[in-house]
Nucleic acid binder design. Sequence first.
RNA 1: CGGGGCGUAGCGCAGCCUGGUAGCGCACCUGCUUUGGGAGCAGGGGGUCGCGUGUUCGAAUCACGCCGCCCCGACCA
Length: 440
Amino acid sequence: MLRTRFPVPTQKDDPAEAQIVSHRLMLRAGLVRQASAGIYSWLPMGFRVLKKIEDIVRAEQNAAGAVEVLMPTIQAADLWKASGRYEDYGLEMLRITDRHEREMLYGPTNEEQICEIAAEFLKSYRDLPKNLYHIQWKFRDELRPRFGVMRGREFLMKDNYSFDVDAAASRLSYHRMFLAYLRTFQALGLTSIPVRAESGPIGGDMSHEFVILADTGESGVFCDRGILDHPVPGPVYDDPEELQRIVDQWTGPYAATDDMHEPERFEREVPEERRVEARGIEVGHVFYFGTKYSEKLGVVVDLPDGSRVPVEMGSYGIGVSRLVGAIIEAGHDDRGILWPASVAPFQVGLANLRQNDPACAECAAAMYDSLTGAGVEVLYDDRDERAGTKLADLDLLGFPWQVVVGPRGVAQGVVELRARATGESAEVSPEDALQRIQGA
RNA sequence: CGGGGCGUAGCGCAGCCUGGUAGCGCACCUGCUUUGGGAGCAGGGGGUCGCGUGUUCGAAUCACGCCGCCCCGACCA
């Protein structure tokens, strides 16, 4: 992609309204633009990141056996009246009236809607289990939106819903999603910690929040170092015993955010040298809620003995748009963003420091062609800008690799290849640069 | 929703107290000189001063009302 075709409104100055680093960097790097409080437009660069995260989440959901659907953003109030939540949900729910004076709402979540859909095709125990997900915009009219996309009113979320014949089967679904989350966050380049969450209406041990570590995170995290040392398991979704073992391994050691933290227990259970106190950001939530919605919305199946029971359900959320901010919180320095390769909008930022120099232009164009020809995503800064401007932009935008073409190197037949995260740099031939990038 | 603050050019701000028809830096446009870490000089374009009402000969400035945005708190993916 040529920078001259790809609008990236970067800014040198910090916007006054942005308090936390990810919000500042997202505005400075031209990823988003605020439309209203807690509502953002996604500009080209931010949109690419959002889509990459979405794709990774989708791939892991599919691998775990979930099936994608797409439900609407606008829902009928009648549905919510059936579950009793229309009154309960309060002012966070954005209520809308259409031209026929019909009460509608912009969905803050989709339990009711998925139940209505599932009731269509779940008739028998033989139709179970099922696990459906969608990735859709939600709206919660927060009292106080803040922190940019981290706490917006409109946000993109992956939510899925499991349907099982009984509690034991539902536990297996829960375990599958638990593993899917560990794998998803790893694939996003993050370190995640499952922490016990406020138990749902059913109680028990089936509610966890997934927190990713970031120095500037909003929540305090207290855990046993053992959790951080576990390797993330492979996709063993079809092995119930192994899944149970994995969940036990990850939920056994102490882990809590500050709202659920019990200092005495922490000190009693975790040896001093293994105690970790860090900051984190909540990016996912898995929980089991039994028959709460299936009962009220009539998602019932016949059992072999002819009796009829409501299905056991769980729901599982990942804040996709929030993750863009969270990933920046987890990876940045004083010059800009440090994207993990898996979600970087481009793998390579190519900067030609002397656009109007024919030799440089030729070298940069050749470098661009060989990278794109090899299937590498590269943003070529072909603007007629000064070296400092381009280099500062490269750092701000945070591409994992920087390839710098300038008159100094071109005279020797080399380009400068730099790794954004480590700052390591080498003067290499264009061919070597391509090879090193491909080999990484 | 309670408490606090701010709305002046795309971004950051001054001007307001003490009314006289809008200014600075960055960004943008033109030219020249520059050219490996956000250049220099010269010239230039861009603003319903958030909106409304009022006071006044005259309002960015004073008064009242409204709207928007930000921060702290309670609440949350």
